[in-house]
Design a protein around this nucleic acid. Structure first.
Length: 493
DNA sequence: AAAAAAT
């Protein structure tokens, strides 16, 4: 599933506010009938805002610079018009063999590449247009075969594409359309030199589409370098978080975080939770520990083999896991339909990543919960996030029954000194204040009420609503107060 | 400071 799978026909009526300006249907936009056929089969009738804006521009051949949140239907916003533009080519159908690549779509991660590929395949189902995807971590042989067969649309991650280029197994000399998806992410990941090398292999005469979560100075520079007077489209507000996502943060001591996750999952019967951790090692470890605690969990991060990554993701999508523990490899672009809850086990180092992480829930107008666990030392990160999203995040108090806490505490966490002891800064080490964790609770955490009318792609098992068992939150939402918020900051950070 | 991506 990808961004393009926003079920307009179904959800628009329920979750999305009625569109005031009469949005044209896909019929009226003038997409090629064979593409329209595939669109209709998915059940969509009305384009999302980004689609409504981008389709005409891209179909007209203009360069587009688009800022759109994930979950806005961004993938279809470029996939559909690209296929439309390539249709004359397919109609000619003179020499079916050895068609050179006409459209190239670059993405930062392998999973995203695969998702975009799935989307292209779906929408080109009734057309003669062919597509292929290349990315690292898997055998290059089959990719070479696919490229030799010929494809009009190629989706790729930069590294493997360069590999193909150097081996002369791909011909990019006829690429008339280039898409840089999640461009901000690609820059973050240091792909600029790779992008540069790839783009130098493309014709200068081409249409270039650039999608990014934000229009930072770097992105604008990228646009200036590779685009010609792009049309700027900005759909959702930059750095906005969906209104349908309930956000809450709990102060939890580092060694209690695991127990907190177990309780959030178990006591509420949450069955499809993505838990974000900041490190690859921490991600693996947490998944293992959760398994020991009786939570079905798998991890996904960059040190795992591509096969393992796909396996974990598929198992999660199939509903076989309660928890997917992930690094930020999963923060962007990943689209598992209807994830009802995201937990930040660690707050991300950058506030922008927070936006991407919680963008995994509350997609397409569905409701979702984003829960962040933070130590007092991490509160400043939380404040950074609030500044970025321009809204306060409710603070709660999470309580876990003491006996569960103790049983779930590993031997490891306890003994570790949580913070570095003074690095000669002349200050004594101060144990950060611990949130009160005790046997009783005030008010249970409830997953947000309005259940999405459209069930997740994965059929959720009946939530076992044994509230009260343990996890609790009380503490009235406290308005953010920058002054007091910082006061408990411990030494060191 | 961390993660991702070609091998």
């Amino acid at each position: 599933m990808t961004d393009s799978d926003i079920p307009q026909a179904v959800d628009a009526a329920v979750a999305a506010p009625a569109v005031q300006s009469p949005s044209p249907s896909f019929d009226e936009i003038g997409l090629h009938s064979l593409i329209l056929q595939a669109v209709k089969q998915t059940g969509y009738t009305v384009p999302t805002p980004i689609q409504a804006q981008a389709l005409p521009e891209v179909m007209a051949g203009r360069d587009v610079m688009g800022a759109a949140q994930t979950g806005t239907g961004k993938t279809a916003a470029f996939t559909l018009p690209i296929l439309h533009r390539l249709m004359p080519l397919a109609n000619a159908s003179a020499s079916p063999a050895r068609h050179p690549v006409r459209a190239l779509i670059l993405t930062p991660t392998r999973e995203l590449a695969d998702q975009v590929f799935e989307s292209v395949k779906r929408y080109s189902l009734y057309t003669p247009l062919r597509s292929a995807v290349v990315f690292g971590g898997v055998d290059i042989g089959p990719q070479k075969d696919a490229l030799r067969q010929g494809c009009e649309v190629l989706i790729a991650t930069p590294g493997r594409l360069l590999d193909h280029l150097s081996q002369n197994t791909v011909n990019l000399s006829q690429v008339g359309i280039l898409v840089l998806d999640e461009a901000d992410r690609m820059l973050d990941m240091g792909f600029l030199p790779d992008l540069d090398r790839i783009i130098r292999a493309l014709p200068a005469q081409r249409q270039t589409l650039l999608f990014s979560a934000t229009f930072s100075a770097e992105i604008r520079k990228l646009a200036r370098t590779y685009q010609k007077t792009p049309v700027e489209l900005e759909v959702a507000k930059r750095n906005a978080t969906a209104d349908t996502v309930t956000q809450i943060a709990y102060p939890v001591a580092e060694e209690d975080k695991r127990a907190a996750v177990v309780h959030l999952v178990k006591s509420k019967g949450l069955n499809q939770v993505i838990v974000f951790s900041n490190t690859k090692i921490g991600t693996s470890r947490l998944a293992r520990q959760l398994e020991r605690d009786g939570v079905k969990a798998e991890s996904i991060h960059g040190d795992k083999s591509q096969a393992d990554r796909m396996k974990a993701l598929d198992a999660f999508k199939a509903g076989e896991l309660e928890v997917l523990v992930a690094t930020d490899v999963a923060a962007r672009g990943l689209d598992v339909a209807g994830v009802p809850c995201v937990i930040n086990y660690d707050l991300p180092y950058s506030a922008e990543d927070y936006v991407h992480r919680i963008g995994r829930t509350g997609r397409a107008g569905a409701s979702g919960d984003a829960i962040s666990l933070y130590t007092p030392a991490q509160e400043k990160l939380l404040i950074e996030v609030e500044k970025l999203i321009k809204r306060p995040i409710e603070r709660g108090q999470l309580m876990v029954p003491k006996r569960d806490l103790d049983s779930s505490r590993g031997s490891s966490a306890r003994s570790l000194p949580a913070h570095d002891r003074g690095r000669g800064r002349g200050k004594a080490y101060v144990e950060p204040p611990k949130p009160v964790i005790d046997e009783f609770f005030l008010k249970p955490y409830e997953p947000s009420a309005s259940a999405p009318s459209k069930p997740a792609a994965v059929k959720p098992t009946a939530p076992n609503r044994k509230a009260g068992l343990g996890v609790l939150l009380g503490a009235a939402p406290k308005p953010v107060d920058k002054d007091t918020a910082n006061s408990g900051e411990p030494v060191g950070n």
